[in-house]
Simulated assay, not measured.
Amino acid sequence: MLTAETAWRLFIERGYDNVTVADICAAAEIAPRTFHRYFPTKNDVILEPVRFMTTLVSEHVDSSPADLPDAAVLRSAMHALGVFVVEHRQWLGALRTVIQESHHLRATHQGVPPEREQELSAKLAARHGESGGPGWRRRLLVAYAVAAFRIWHDDYLRDKISGDPLARLDEMVATIEQE
């Protein structure tokens, strides 16, 4: 989408804190109403990659065979997410830079929101026909997988991984306790 690409270009050039919605609209040659049709706020442009990535993991869990153990589902989902990160390294690296350079975003951007981890835990529980919400073990399993991915993601974008980055991700996520 041209609007998001324009916003990202401006964020990278000027810094998030120095770009307004009016600046984005002028550069993209659109009306503010058009911008707000897709993004309620400027911050939503920044959140889009995170939303996409959490949706990717959620869809992966939904499409996994019912008899696959939760740890295997999470390992596979984190690998699929890693493939996305490797394919979009430049864009995600720019996101990281934009966040680090913005006082506002550093204070408000915390990565995967806890409610998304809770949703993922509930999806895993539902695969087993469990109701009443996921138990602490399943929630901890999800938190562990997300933390392993977050550490890998940070190391990958900082060029701290030598060799195959996906093999390193698989190694890190494989440490999830087997069910």
Score class of each variant (00 low, 15 high):
33 R>Y: 06
43 N>W: 03
53 M>A: 05
110 Q>V: 11
107 A>Q: 13
163 G>N: 14
132 G>V: 06
100 Q>A: 11
64 S>L: 03
120 L>Y: 11
17 D>M: 01
32 P>E: 08
146 V>T: 15
100 Q>C: 09
112 V>L: 12
128 H>S: 13
66 A>T: 02
15 G>F: 05
43 N>G: 01
106 R>D: 04
154 D>M: 14
115 E>F: 14
70 D>F: 05
177 E>R: 10
139 R>K: 14
56 L>D: 00
118 Q>E: 14
33 R>K: 05
165 P>E: 14
103 H>P: 09
32 P>C: 10
27 A>S: 06
114 P>R: 12
135 G>M: 12
142 V>Y: 08
96 R>C: 06
120 L>D: 07
46 I>S: 01
11 F>E: 07
45 V>M: 00
87 E>G: 07
65 P>I: 01
99 I>H: 06
43 N>R: 07
128 H>A: 13
54 T>K: 02
91 W>R: 15
74 L>F: 05
79 H>T: 06
73 V>E: 01
104 H>N: 05
127 R>T: 09
157 L>C: 15
168 R>D: 15
140 L>R: 09
91 W>H: 13
80 A>W: 07
161 I>H: 09
5 E>W: 07
61 V>I: 07
122 A>I: 13
23 D>T: 10
124 L>A: 00
126 A>D: 10
164 D>E: 15
144 Y>I: 09
162 S>W: 08
161 I>F: 09
116 R>K: 14
139 R>G: 13
56 L>T: 04
31 A>L: 10
52 F>I: 00
73 V>F: 05
20 T>F: 01
82 G>E: 02
13 E>I: 08
38 Y>L: 02
108 T>P: 12
52 F>N: 00
101 E>N: 10
45 V>G: 01
113 P>F: 11
47 L>P: 01
58 S>V: 04
170 D>I: 08
21 V>F: 11
88 H>R: 05
78 M>F: 04
124 L>M: 05
